[in-house]
Amino acid sequence: MRALGLTALITFVLDQLTKWLVVQWAGLAVRGEIDLLPPWLNLRMAWNRGVNFGLMANDADLMRWILIGVALAISLWVLIWMLRERPGRWAMISGGLLIGGALGNVLDRVIYGAVADFLNMTCCGIENPYSFNVADIAIFAGAIGLILFTGGKKNKA
């Protein structure tokens, strides 16, 4: 259980710290874009009011609160699942990644009304129009980890 809580806390803090550094301190919210390692890694400000890739984006305040509720419900469900099943260390870390990332994006929606996305990667001549953040990476990695590290053999006890 400690791995889950610690991973969630570190993920949440890292997500919020990077958002503050990039959006506020470096001024990306005003500047709009900063090239770091063009064309591979750039900072591109995007206020995501929807889910991944802006799906279900809507300026309605109702959608904002629905997405907050969904993220909190999924986080609670994963927490209860991990408490009941007591899977191995890697599954707990995966659950922590997902919960910490989801809570980081929830805080953005509460404070800003949208999720602050800023990482943009382009490769191989294909221009990527989408931005993402540390929380998005953690949610994706956590979901994949939960698929890989849960299930399988049941305890005989």
Rank of each mutant, 00 (worst) to 15 (best):
G125M: 08
A46P: 03
A114D: 01
M92L: 15
I144H: 03
N133S: 10
A138N: 01
L72H: 01
G95C: 06
A116F: 01
A71M: 11
W20N: 01
F53Q: 06
A135H: 09
I93H: 00
A29Q: 11
N48F: 13
L148W: 11
V13D: 10
C124E: 06
V51R: 02
N42L: 14
L41S: 09
G142W: 05
N128R: 07
T18I: 02
A73D: 02
W47T: 05
L72D: 03
I99T: 06
L83M: 15
A102I: 06
A143I: 09
T11I: 10
I99K: 00
V115S: 14
G151Q: 05
A8S: 12
G104N: 10
G5Q: 08
L36F: 15
V106F: 06
F149K: 06
P39M: 12
R2V: 14
G101Q: 09
T18P: 02
V78M: 03
E85Y: 07
G54E: 03
D136V: 06
N52K: 01
L9T: 14
W40Y: 14
S94K: 01
A116T: 04
G113E: 07
N128A: 11
I139F: 08
E127Y: 12
L98T: 04
F12L: 15
L103H: 03
G104W: 08
E127G: 02
G50Y: 12
I66Y: 06
F140H: 05
I93C: 00
L21I: 15
D117V: 12
A135W: 11
R64I: 04
W20H: 11
S131F: 08
